[in-house]
Simulated assay, not measured.
Amino acid sequence: MSVRIISREDVQKHLSMGACIDLLRPAMVSLARGETLQLPRQILKMDAGHMFGVMPGAMGGTAEFGAKIISVYPENFAKGLQSHQGPVVLFDPETGAMVAMLHAGEITGIRTAAASAVATDALARKNASRLAVLGYGEQAEAHVKAMKEVRDITSVTVWGRSAERCRAFADNIQKHTGIECLPHDSVKSAVRDADIICTTTSAYEPVLMGEDVAPGTHLNVVGSSHAGPAEIDNSLVAKAEFFADHTPFVLAQGAEFLRAKEAGLVDDSHILAEIGEVLDGKHPGRTSDTEITIYKSLGHVVQDLASGWYLYTKSKEQGFGTEAAF
């Protein structure tokens, strides 16, 4: 038996943001319809904020299946390393054989932002053009690229705890996109005029408050992927139209929602729909230009499997990747 190894460089080269967005739309619809199979992610919380997670799933009972096995070291970005490291492992649905191992960190970096772009396209106002990003790590950069795919972004503002790194991020974005990007020394000023806000921080306590967000804004809440850390406060959860990537997972691990629920401000019905239900026409999504909409992203294995199987199929057609005996 041989296994195809697809490196970080191959993922970067062959999984464009636009292609990933197109892959995730049907994947999220399948998830919302209950066509996919998955277990809740298993997370080991270790010292120093490190985590080790396993995310198993299948695209259907007779479809491709596999798992993402990944470590999360948030401080790695400052060292020039990815925060998410490990493989996405794919299995052939006909034989059950392992057929591929792909660079999970790079897939995660692309598909997380692509999922936010899918949600933004479904929920943000059509004329939304001003983007605010909280955080300056790899997901912050990926989210700028992703938002450009679904809206005509004319300006970007960014906030982060380190003024120096915030300025460097802004300079890099402006250099590589041609879009004006301005660093801010407060969250309030960074989001004041935003149409779209992406929170991509590692904050444990909320950095964005309900009073800071203007009517009509769409938010992608991305940084916290398990119960505990929360990027936005309870009042913002309560006053927004709240959408999930996958409702059962948000009810179990969506920190911002769980905090607002514990405070008695919302109940489970506050999750209006999964984004796949909006895409599938089962829920209208945004119904006015003044609503604040939130997409809570925890990340889901169907996103990794859809991206991974696309790359595996493409690698066989185009000859990239390395075959290894197993």
Rank of each mutant, 00 (worst) to 15 (best):
A122S: 11
A122K: 09
A122M: 08
L123Y: 01
L123W: 06
A124I: 08
R125H: 08
K126V: 13
N127F: 02
A128T: 03
A128W: 09
S129G: 12
S129R: 13
R130Y: 02
L131G: 04
L131I: 08
A132T: 10
A132Y: 05
A132L: 02
A132N: 05
A132S: 15
V133T: 05
V133F: 00
V133N: 05
L134P: 11
G135W: 06
G135Y: 04
G135C: 03
Y136S: 14
Y136A: 13
Y136R: 11
G137C: 11
G137M: 08
E138C: 00
E138M: 12
E138W: 04
Q139G: 12
Q139K: 14
A140Y: 08
E141M: 11
A142E: 05
A142M: 12
H143F: 08
V144G: 10
K145N: 12
K145G: 01
K145H: 13
K145Q: 14
A146G: 05
A146Y: 08
A146T: 05
A146C: 09
K148N: 11
E149L: 13
V150Q: 05
V150C: 05
R151N: 05
R151E: 02
R151M: 03
D152C: 08
D152T: 10
D152A: 15
I153P: 09
I153C: 09
T154P: 00
T154R: 15
S155N: 03
S155T: 13
S155M: 06
S155W: 01
S155C: 09
S155D: 10
V156L: 08
T157W: 04
T157F: 01
T157A: 06
T157D: 02
T157P: 05
V158T: 14
V158W: 01
V158Y: 00
W159A: 00
W159H: 13
W159M: 01
W159G: 00
W159S: 00
G160L: 05
G160F: 02
G160Y: 07
G160H: 08
G160D: 10
R161N: 03
R161P: 12
R161M: 03
R161Y: 04
R161F: 00
S162Y: 09
S162F: 04
S162D: 13
A163P: 11
A163N: 13
A163C: 00
E164H: 14
E164G: 02
R165A: 10
R165F: 07
